[in-house]
Each structure stands twice: as C-alpha cells, then as structure tokens.
Nucleic acid binder design. Structure first.
Lengths: 193, 193
DNA sequence: GTCTATATTGGGATAGAC
DNA sequence: GTCTATCCCAATATAGAC
C-alpha cells in the first residue's frame, strides 16, 4: 500500500502498474493478489486509509459548539496540517478522485468529512454569515488553497505563514457573505452580454 | 475529434480507445492514423481547439481598460457561457488536465487565458482590491464555480441566475480583500493548535 | 483517403510449486 | 504466504490492398 501510494503520487495512476508496485514493495507480482483480489481494490484501500487518517486528525479537539469562524479555522487548518505532514497523500487523493474509481468506491470514505463541512456550512448560513452554495462547490473552495499550497511546496520552499493565512482567508471569504467595497455593481453587471 | 471529445467527456480518458473513437466517428480504426500520428496527438488537438474557441469568445468585446469589477465579471461570465454552450468541452478539459498529457502538451493552449487572468489579478492587487494569491490558486478559484454549476446542470435542471450570481460572487470574494464582519479573529485564531 | 487484417506490446490476473 | 512462470486480453499502431 505504501508503494502504491508513492507511485501514484509520483507518476500517476496510469503509470502505476502491478509490476512496479511489486518491485517497489520488494515482493513478487503474484503476492499482491494474496492480499487484494484486484488492483482497484488495493487502490481503494489506500484511498480509504488516507481519508480515515485525515478525518481522525481533523476531528481531534474539534469543538462543534464553537463559533462559526473558529470552527472553519480549525477544520481548514487541521486538514492543511494533516496533508502537509505527507503531501503524497493529497496528491494520491486528487489523482484517485479524478478517475472512475471514485464511482466504484462509492464515496463512502469521503462522507464523514463532507458531513462535517456540511454541518458547519449550514450553521453559517443559518447565522447569516455564509452564502448558500452547492455542496460540491463549497468543498471545492475549501480544498483549493490546500491543494495549491502543498503542490507549490512539493517543488519549492515551505510557504510562509502569512501566505497560508491569506490562502485560508480566500476560502473563507468565498464562503462568507462579504460586504461590497464601493459600488454594488458586482451583481448588476453580469446581465450585460 | 468530435467523437473523441464526446467519449472522453462521457466515459473518461481510460475508456476512450481508438477502437471506440473510430466506431463512433464511423470510420475504420486505421483511418485515425492518416490524420494523427498518435492517439495522444489527437487528444491534444481536441484540447487545443477547445481552448482556442473559448479564448476567442471570452476576449470578444473585452475591455482591458474597464474597471476591475467589470473586467472580472466579463471574463467569468463569458467563460461560463462558453462552456455552458457545450459542457462536454469543460469535462474534456478537466479530464485532460488531470493526466500526464498536459505535460506533453506543454501548457501552450492554456497560456493566453492564464495571462488574461494574471493581468487582471495584478491590476486588482495594484488597486488594493485583490489579495495576493499564487497564480494557480487564483485560476483554481476562478474556475471552481463554473465547474461546479455545469457539472450539476449535466444531471439536473438549469441553474437559476441568482445561484449563478452567488457562485460568481464566491470566486470574486475569494480574490477580493473582504472587510471582516465582526471580530478580526479570522487571522489570529489559526495559531491555536 | 479509407478500408481489412495483423503485428506487437504490455498490462492484469492465475496456476501451481515451494 | 511467497515465489516463478504463464495465460489472456485489450489496446496502439502498422501494412498493404483498393
């Protein structure tokens, strides 16, 4: 499983053959099929383990009764730290999610985290602080800065804290109902053309 | 090319074999190789055409001298409409971007649009209206609502204009420097834990 | 320019010894 | 529980007639 994780993260799912997994794990190819009846099953197992681990870290010390802002910051920051501790996990999840394998997986692994975000989002809407957004857009905006930062750190220096805060603020502002600066033009203009 | 577009959009790149492309295009498999020396070359040609078409529509009637808000709304809305006219194009671009093929393509097709967004973002930062964000995060936040809405419309009713406006506002607010509502807590809290 | 037929490769999965 | 050897198939690409 560790070999599969690394290979997928580094070279993508297409390039991750059972031969290479076995080679990197230093076992014979046939051995894989003693533990998993299929290659897809192995990949799904890796995916689920990652999701489980991250969820555990994120919910640790989480206060569902705290105020909206605190909850958002906790969830975002913990998710960020969890993946930052092993960026290959994020890459794997990304690549995995983009294939048809997610459909066969069924979305079970993602559900707990999605519900956590969903509950926060609902509460924020109720409190008049958040926009009403479709659930996948909401989660997409949540993860976008995490993906961006950790991708950049893969091939460069660690991102300074100020930039991390700005990136988190981008996600938060996307969710929030933000007062306009000057004109209220933003909403009117998009009828033109 | 049309057959390839549709197959990739519907079933993904892995399921798009030369045999199925030929079948759908109602030509023999060998015929493909009279026009493209390789399957990848065909897919890259499809990708580049989509990017060219969308860029053309987006830049039509674009006023680079207009104010920041107007420019953002124009670019976002035109991009949205361009892909909405043929959502398969968006799905194709998404799937294509997630593979190693983007690397072989070289990113040439995406460049013009990226520069347009980059210029707007720079101007907005200069005007004190936009956050300073890494370029890929900036583009990611720009496209996130478009992808989300068009994905939803693929398997459901058309999205009402009010929701489209809210989604666009989410992208815009993510870019914008938004005044905090009550506490200035957002920035301090994320040191906790 | 398009066809039919085929060469070739490389991947997932299995059989059966140890 | 791990190995070696091998099967089987599907997919890309080519050859050469029409």
């Amino acid at each position: 499983m560790r070999a599969a994780l690394q290979l997928v993260a580094d070279d993508g799912l297409a390039a991750t053959t059972t031969a290479r997994i076995a080679e990197m794990a230093e076992v014979a190819e046939g051995t894989i099929y003693r533990h998993f009846s299929t290659k897809d099953e192995l990949l799904i197992a890796v995916y689920r383990q990652i999701k489980r681990d991250v969820f555990e870290q994120v919910t640790d010390a989480y206060e569902p009764a705290a105020n909206i802002t605190e909850r958002f910051v906790h969830l975002w920051h913990q998710t960020f730290l969890a993946y930052r501790a092993d960026p290959q996990k994020l890459i794997f999840v990304q690549k995995f999610s983009e294939t048809e394998l997610v459909r066969t997986e069924g979305g079970l692994a993602h559900k707990p985290m999605a519900e956590l975000l969903g509950a926060l989002h609902r509460d924020g809407i109720h409190a008049g602080q958040f926009k009403s957004l479709p659930i996948d857009l909401m989660t997409g905006l949540f993860y976008a800065p995490i993906i961006s930062i950790l991708r950049a750190e893969q091939s460069g220096p660690p991102c300074p804290d100020t930039q991390i805060k700005t990136a988190m603020a981008a996600a938060f502002d996307a969710w929030r109902i933000c007062p306009p600066i000057q004109e209220t033009q933003i909403m009117e203009k998009n009828d033109a053309n």
